[in-house]
Amino acid sequence: MKKVKIYVTLRESVLDPQGSAVMGALHTMGYDEVADVRIGKYLELQVDDSERELDVIVKEMCQKLLTNTVIEDYRYDVEEAVSK
């Protein structure tokens, strides 16, 4: 079994109103060093080993359902899942 960690963010070209609001708050708090904030999503999948290649099905799932590629980018990491 594998653990797939998927990170989804709005594409660079898309304005992130939540990120802008949070950056405004950080600046108000005095953290002027912060140049940009992008808010995204984190998904964690436990995937059983099968004859299908993991990279292929993860990309399929991301493109079909987990992200909207019109507005979002994604990347993912794979780890060995620790059996419970």
């Binding site: 709005l10 898309v14 304005l15 109103p17 939540q18 609001a21 909207n68 019109v70 507005i71």
Partner: peptide, 17 residues
């Protein structure tokens, strides 16, 4: 309809949140 690809583009969070 946009998610299903029947219409182009996407709908984001309102600008003023």
């Amino acid at each position: 309809l946009t998610e299903a690809g029947l219409l182009p583009g996407a709908l984001l969070r309102n600008k003023n949140l």
